[in-house]
Nucleic acid binder design. Sequence first.
RNA 1: GGGCCCGUGGCCUAGCCAGGAUAUGGCGCCGGCCUUCUAAGCCGGAUGUCGAGGGUUCGAAUCCCUCCGGGUCCGCCA
Length: 611
Amino acid sequence: MQGKTTVNVKSIRSFRHCMDVVDPKKTYESEFTERVKRAFSELGLSSEPIIEKPKRRESDLCLVCFPAAKELGITPAEAASRLQEMVGKSDLFELEVKGGYLNCTFEPGRYISDAASFLWSKRGSLGKEEAGNEKIIVEHTSANPNGPFHVGRARNPVIGDTLVRLMRHAGFEVESQYWVNDMGKQVMILVWGLFNIDPSTIDLPEGDKEDHRLVRFYQKANAIMESDEEVERDINQLLLEYEKAVRDRDWERPISERGNTIRARDVRETCDRVLSGMKTSLSRLNVGMDRFVYESQVVEDGSLFDVIERLKKSPLCREEDGAYYLDLSGLIEGGDEERFRRRFVFTRSDGSALYTTRDLAYHRWKLSRCHHAINVLGEDHRYQSLMLELALRELGLEKVPEAVFYSFVSLPEGKMSTRRGRTVYLDDLLDEAVQRAREEVEKRRKDLKEEEIAHISEVVGIGALRFNMIRVQPEKKIVFRWEEALNFEGSSAPFIQYSHARACSILEKGGMIPGPLDFSRLVERAERELVKQLSRFDEVVSKAARERRVHLMATYLVDTASSFNDFYRDCPVLSENDERRRAARLALVELSREVFSSGLSILGIEAPASM
RNA sequence: GGGCCCGUGGCCUAGCCAGGAUAUGGCGCCGGCCUUCUAAGCCGGAUGUCGAGGGUUCGAAUCCCUCCGGGUCCGCCA
């Protein structure tokens, strides 16, 4: 019997070693939870125990005893004491009654050592998980290709790209997509301008980014159109002819009879020219995009017309003056009947499709290729997104896209507006960020070569910017102020990067980490807090991924950097005389380095080893 | 007019969805810490009717209702 048991334990251990070591956090938690549940049933309590992680962290878990007190007809403190007796003693934790709470503190000597060993066994893949081969498509940015990005919507690429990185880290297969609007009026205005305006009448900006050059044509064409109805008719005609040419897959067909000949392919090419400049901005922002899907694709492959035919068969379909729409009034609650018409119009009177209809066809295609589709959208798309969802259901799809909405970045004077010339271009923000970072670097690092200064400035400047776009909940609006957008201290990317650099510096000087490691040498408050903080990394990654809330990562990393800095202050590593403690601390520094490095990489921010 | 989102010290913000202990951090302000692993750091101090008012609850920043302020939408535009 004895022998058999031993064999079993051994085999379980080795099995666990191959697969996955059990997280001590869970072991300790369930030990307490199970005992509490038993105590509840022994006391005949019908309420479910409320066990929480105290915010102030004076203990690891706490049992809220107010409901039990009420049920037992005694004071909360008495209930806590009684529950303390019932739960009893354990090797894994200590209990303490405080007011109406029963606090549970994991036995530190043992828990810290277990938790650190666990982290150490997972080093190299901290926070990584298996998500069961689920594929996710994240659509983000999707700005009209008629000019450079401005910061009003700059949160979009940052939130989107962070989401992509986060989901990948959490184990999903992720593809990012940019839906290129090449069939819209904006683009047609630009194309018209390009072919009908004498370039010598346009004041072209310095530099060679196509988006900045071509937007001038757009702006001028827009002004001309507003005062000349004939031009507007031309542009509308262009739109119509382009759609026909695409439908017939005849990219060489001339689509304008006036002025210079414009062929269908010129529209696509113009988009690509503008897009080339926009892609440069994205890559500088460290935003990767896996696929660009053109709106014209759903026209060219006919999927748009299939969608239209299907919608016409819906019982919700109505017709008015030759235009078709879905009557959604039964599906959308509330609203002002008079002014808020709950219609999803999918074809005009002339039979042509609308943007939303093409978007619908695109989503049908997208959803067929993934388990979850996530769209990062400005808050102005909330209603459209709802319509899209309802229409997709009408098409018989059970899966609908999830939307992550963000509020706009505005200026202290108010909303950004291209028309009123109140805009800040993303490229200018990027330049300014790097320039300001350079001033900081030059101030403190006179020892570096130009090449290193340039690299650190880029990484710090862009990092600060990205961080500021995702550090707050997306639904809160951001008022753009240079000094906040480019904050280099406190709650910022450089603060985290700096902690990372400190860790790297220690590791570089510390040399090899000698084993075997004895984490029970970690007894200082700061090192214990750091271990606990580091062991939260996986929960935060999975929660942020599950809830699609990237700002949780930002908050977590700031807290971690803060814990690391406390450790840095209180626990010297290199000068530690106790060899085993020195090794344990060095290992803790390495774990911290990895959390910073991989946490920042989830945020799309580089972590320099020196700054 | 109606729908949706937001409202936390002078400023920004976590916590809110799944209600629990003296509300989290940062900026700015005041005062300290670089012969000791990078001071982009750390320590201390001042600053709060959690928009307002009701309600539910043993307990509300958190849930419900009303109101106020800001954002956003309400095209056969995209």
